[in-house]
Design a binder for these strands. Structure first.
Ligand SMILES: [Zn+2]
Ligand SMILES: [Zn+2]
Ligand SMILES: [Zn+2]
Ligand SMILES: [Zn+2]
Lengths: 174, 174
DNA sequence: GATTTTATTGAGAATCATTATAATTTAGGG
DNA sequence: CCCTAAATTATAATGATTCTCAATAAAATC
């Protein structure tokens, strides 16, 4: 786990012409003390801090999250909920990915170094500078499947799961 | 490439208690005729169809995109722009992933069967029904790096790229 | 330490994407 | 062809995020 103290953070900020403020310090510290596996929205963070007596305005929360994500201190996640979530950005070997149930939003983390390697290779191949690399697996729990969800899937839908499956419709070579 | 004609689409829709409408037919057909590598937002699609003289209301566009994504006909993508993008959902072996420049939004597709395998394995392990599996690689082009972007990255930021890199701050075992 | 400069904060307005509402139209089973 | 439920449309409403600007506070300079 990588820890930035106030001095580290000040130094990182100064390098890009930004200042260390109590708000930024508290936000980063909050993420550092958050148990692994938590993914907070701006609103989540706002309320969590408020509960601790730290009243940081929502504007500042949004601004800080974006800034710190750009700085590489936080990681911005698109899970399955319509708003962004953030977590501490842990470099390899703590880099991980997410499996999300689109029905109940349960999120499971898993590591897989091969994926990061793929990202490194792909970015290199295209001459780009890699920033992040996220595998997001969308799924539904069996309970959800039983009621509601399956009715919206074509009965024979086999996509990505179907490594060798058949599909209806005309299949043409492309 | 998988092609659904009107009859196929009607059948898919009827299975879930929905009707075939000219709007739905036109939208699907539009995606089927779209060159590989295009990723349209709702607004994009709205305008593209309008240009062809097909005036489908934005509400219907939004509703159809969501429906078809749930049906597995389309794939919903979270690229780097603040709105969703859609493409035809091609099952394996056409399943692919995306490398995005967060500066210019250029998006490059690539295939990698190992990633889908990881998704299948992970979902299975957790007892979930896999729906989709997307590796999204965020990067910036060198031009962007030169001006602007690098200034917002700590000079020594090495994350995910740094398979063996060093990081400032206190590193503790976790 | 006081002064000056400039980034940052906070409250609220504004914007953007998306979803909901309700009246009208239409698909498709009978 | 008729009837009912589903779908479309225009519009309002929502929700997340960003913007604006006056007030505040870092930190560079004196
Ligand atoms: Zn995580
Ligand atoms: Zn959430
Ligand atoms: Zn694509
Ligand atoms: Zn776009």
């Amino acid at each position: 786990m990588v820890l930035y103290d106030a001095a580290d953070l000040r130094s990182e900020l100064h390098q890009i012409g930004c200042r260390l403020t109590p708000q930024r310090e508290k936000i980063l510290k909050f993420f550092q003390n958050l148990p692994q596996g938590n993914h907070l929205s701006a609103e989540d963070l706002y309320h969590a801090l408020a509960q601790r007596g730290e009243n940081i305005s929502l504007s500042t929360i949004y601004r800080s999250l974006k800034l710190m994500a750009r700085m590489g201190l936080l990681r911005e996640l698109e899970l399955a909920e319509g708003h962004k979530h953030y977590e501490l950005n842990q470099p390899y070997p703590h880099h991980h990915h997410h499996l999300v149930c689109v029905q109940c939003n349960r999120t499971i983390e898993f590591t897989n170094p091969a994926i990061l390697k793929t990202g490194v290779k792909q970015a290199e191949k295209e001459g780009l500078h890699l920033l992040d690399c996220q595998l997001t697996i969308h799924a539904v729990c069996p309970e959800a499947l039983r009621r509601g969800w399956p009715s919206l899937l074509p009965s024979h839908w086999v996509c990505p799961r179907a490594l060798n499956g058949t599909v209806t419709g005309v299949i043409t070579e492309n």
